[in-house]
Design a protein around this nucleic acid. Structure first.
Length: 790
DNA sequence: TTGTGGGTCTTTTTT
DNA sequence: AGACCCACAA
């Protein structure tokens, strides 16, 4: 089967269409359609506005998917379009699947909706039909980032560029960003000429040529080539414009320039385009998304309907008020005011911790409390809870903690199934068996498992193949015939090429059993054995994944079909049993909702991310703020924000300041769970830090049992007694090191605070004030320390 | 050819 | 701290 053959819905367009509405359709349209029940006026308006462009500004939790799917159902039911005349585009397969499911549920099947999918999957369908116009054959392959990087490395080496100074990743990122902006090599502006040591454009052109030679595309090409075809072949564009009577776009705020052009070209004739988005949830600027697209919609499509969905069905008033207050800090918004009928609900909770481990500990306890149910909350399943972090490395502290207390968790968005090394290796074996000319697959697996074929041997294979103008696999065969490989490698290479020949034969048999074949390939190639002999910890998991892969084959008729599918669908489909708390990044959380959400790590530099602010300034900060908005609005009932005063960053302890977003939270909607003033930074607007004198007055360090214990110990050891230095302020810049509890910190603090949890011993060492001297104290419950009131 | 030790870098992620 | 990548030695 070739999926590019089955997609010929386009031909069906030539079939005569019913003129106007049928009687039954008119009857349907006349009475209020039952599927409209339960829509609010705004949603209804979004569903019914059919004459001209529509911009649906849908805030978080306002039922935009409901409006979007109902709109599709409405178009179908009123006979405005056939299922295959509606182009519905999303960004992720998950979103496409959900939309399909929901339309299917309302209509009793969404079979005819052939043009509902991601930008990329739809582009592939179009591109397969017109591949020759951009120099490809219709059975082109789609490279993943791994292949892409390997290709670029070869090019860089061939151009004798020092890959150390000019990494392939950098070039890949550059090319990707150019493709996101719909720039072919000729169109890259000369201002970009200095990129990649002045050779960026040149290498880009070479890379594109190499891709055509391989009859391959990368992900960016799928859109870029399609746009090129539309721009250079008006007749073809016109066909599609006629064909797609209505266009719907989800998450419009995340479109990049290429996608924007793609849409505008298709929509410019009839202008029946409906874009749904939320400018406040644009969080993918760093990968080319242009908030400008949504901000500009009204001038792009003059006379468009703008519908605002503002009634929120998800969150409590406190959560909405907090999210709104934070996002209000951004400028240039289209502006929305989320509101809700609900009046009940818990305030947000804000808590500071001593360090990241303490934070994880506290959240673990809190999760268990929520499971049991608390004074304020009914018992909740772990499935109802999520921890949303800014950066994926933050997830580890929680994994560690949950592992030790035996709390079931799931990490969402980790390394994806199809991106794991063992899966890609296995797929490369399948690819080579099906297409013996797939050189990239050959390179990946020729020495995996180790066959004694290192650099040298591989280079001779490359040379032989190039001289003979043949694929690498054939080159290897010829080299073997010529006796060009010696020693152990020869025997193993022969076994490999013979195996490949055998497996390739097998794929040519009509209706071959692809599952048995796949198992045979992995077994006979020695790939399974490689992992079985591997005694490292992750080996069993990898074998498990391979089994999983073979199982996934069952849903396909043959290996070809499977590979075609997998190149576009990269999501992890394995759903394990049992209730688990979810841990994921804020980015991965978009589109999801949970009754209880934890937002840890709200510290300046981490969130908002310092790098984001350094690289993109105010623009970066605003995107971070949108991320905060997304995080808070994921919560339905309970949202807990936390930060730590100290955190290990790249192996170094660093003192942290609370996030500036904490200062933007409205104090009336936030419960502070930490004694105010615990940390010098205070809680911003929610609760400003008390004056130092007040905090010193509250401190009762010297009456604590701990203080006495310290005195005892000093006496025992014959060292000097801890010095009393009450009501003095320490210049933190003079602190060279300090210890709290059993941790020692060697760091200069130009600013900030030092704190501990109750019971921590605390000692500070100075180096500026003459000879080193040490003061020591003890952290009490009342004064978990700040500017060291000794 | 394969294993190892030192140097480098460190946000977010879909297709 | 930890992952990754490359250069070098066995």
């Amino acid at each position: 089967m070739n999926s590019y053959d089955e997609n010929d819905a386009f031909e069906a367009a030539a079939a005569p269409q019913p003129a106007g509405l049928s009687l039954s359709q008119r009857a349907m349209a006349a009475r209020p359609a039952p599927y409209m029940d339960g829509l609010n006026p705004a949603q209804r308006a979004a569903v019914e506005a059919m004459d001209g462009p529509v911009l649906m500004l849908a805030g978080a939790g306002t039922g935009k998917t409901k409006a979007l799917t109902t709109r599709i159902v409405h178009m179908l039911n009123t006979g405005r379009a056939n299922p295959n005349e509606i182009l519905a585009v999303t960004f992720t397969n998950k979103a496409a699947r959900e939309m399909k499911d929901r339309v299917g549920r309302m209509m009793g099947g969404a079979d005819g909706m052939k043009w509902m999918g991601t930008f990329h999957s739809i582009s592939v369908k179009i591109l397969r039909r017109h591949a020759e116009l951009v120099g490809l054959k219709s059975n082109f392959t789609i490279l993943d980032t791994d292949d892409q990087l390997r290709l670029l490395k070869q090019l860089i080496a061939a151009n004798s560029i020092d890959e150390k100074r000019w990494p392939a990743r950098m070039l890949a990122g550059l090319i990707d960003s150019w493709k996101n902006r719909a720039w072919t090599p000729e169109k890259v502006p000369s201002a970009e000429g200095s990129a990649y040591n002045n050779r960026g454009t040149e290498l880009y052109a070479q890379y594109q040529k190499r891709l055509l030679d391989l009859n391959a595309t990368d992900f960016g090409d799928l859109l870029l080539h399609t746009v090129t075809i539309f721009q250079t072949h008006p007749d073809i564009l016109a066909q599609y414009q006629r064909w797609f009577k209505f266009i719907l776009v989800d998450e419009y705020q995340d479109t990049n320039v290429a996608q924007y052009l793609w849409l505008r070209l298709l929509a410019q004739a009839h202008k029946n385009i409906c874009c749904v988005g939320d400018d406040d949830q644009s969080i993918y600027g760093w990968r080319g998304a242009e908030v400008g697209n949504i901000l500009r919609f009204e001038s792009d499509f003059p006379g468009c309907h703008v519908v605002r969905l503002e009634q929120n069905y998800r969150s409590t008033p406190h959560i909405l008020a907090s999210a709104s207050a934070v996002i209000a800090g951004n400028s240039g918004r289209l502006g929305k005011t989320l509101w809700t009928d609900e009046t009940e609900g818990e305030k947000l909770r804000l808590i500071g911790h001593w360090d990241g481990e303490e934070e994880a500990r506290w959240i673990g306890d809190e999760v268990e409390a929520l499971q049991r149910g608390t004074r304020h909350m009914d018992p909740h399943s772990l499935d109802d809870m999520a921890i949303l972090v800014r950066a994926s490395h933050q997830m580890r502290a929680f994994e560690d903690r949950f592992m030790t207390i035996g709390l079931p968790y799931r990490v969402i968005g980790g390394p994806r199934f199809y991106e794991r090394a063992e899966i890609r290796d296995a797929m490369a074996y399948f690819r080579l068996a099906i297409s013996p000319a797939d050189d990239l697959a050959f390179e990946r697996i020729i020495n995996t498992p180790k066959r004694g074929l290192g650099d040298k041997a591989q280079q001779s294979i490359q040379r032989t193949a190039r001289d003979g103008g043949m694929p690498l696999l054939n080159g290897a065969r010829r080299l073997l015939g010529d006796g060009g490989v010696s020693g152990k490698g020869a025997g193993q290479l022969r076994a490999f090429t013979e195996g490949m020949a055998r497996w390739h034969e097998a794929t040519l048999v009509p209706d071959y059993n692809h599952i048995t074949l796949a198992e045979a390939i992995l077994e006979e190639s020695g790939y399974i054995a490689m992992w079985q002999n591997d005694k490292t910890l992750e080996a069993p998991g990898r074998l498990e994944n391979l089994k999983e892969l073979v199982k996934a084959l069952e849903q396909f008729e043959n290996l070809q079909g499977f590979l075609e599918h997998v190149s576009l669908i990269m999501d992890n489909t394995t759903e394990e049993q049992g209730a688990k708390i979810s841990i994921m990044t804020l980015h991965a959380a978009k589109g999801l909702e949970f009754p209880a959400v934890f937002l840890p790590g709200w510290e300046d530099g981490l969130f908002p991310s310092q790098r984001s602010m350094d690289e993109s300034g105010k623009k970066g900060l605003e995107e971070e703020r949108r991320l905060a908005y997304v995080g808070i609005t994921r919560a339905e009932k309970l949202c807990t924000i936390s930060f730590a005063a100290n955190r290990r960053v790249y192996g170094q302890w660093q003192s942290q300041l609370p996030s500036r977003f904490i200062d933007e939270l409205p104090s009336a909607h936030v419960d502070i769970l930490t004694p105010p003033g615990l940390y010098g930074g205070g809680f911003g607007a929610a609760a400003p830090a008390p004056k130092l004198e007040e905090r010193v007055a509250q401190a009762d360090v010297y009456n604590s049992p701990g203080w006495r214990r310290m005195q005892d110990r000093a006496a025992q050891r014959g060292t000097s007694q801890p010095r009393e230095a009450k009501n003095t302020v320490i210049d933190l810049a003079a602190v060279s090191s300090f210890t709290i509890g059993d941790r020692v910190f060697h760091q200069k603090f130009g600013y900030g605070t030092i704190g501990g949890i109750e019971g921590d011993k605390l000692a500070v060492e100075f180096d500026k004030a003459g000879p080193k001297h040490v003061v020591a104290g003890f952290v009490t419950a009342a004064d978990q320390s700040h500017d060291l009131p000794f």
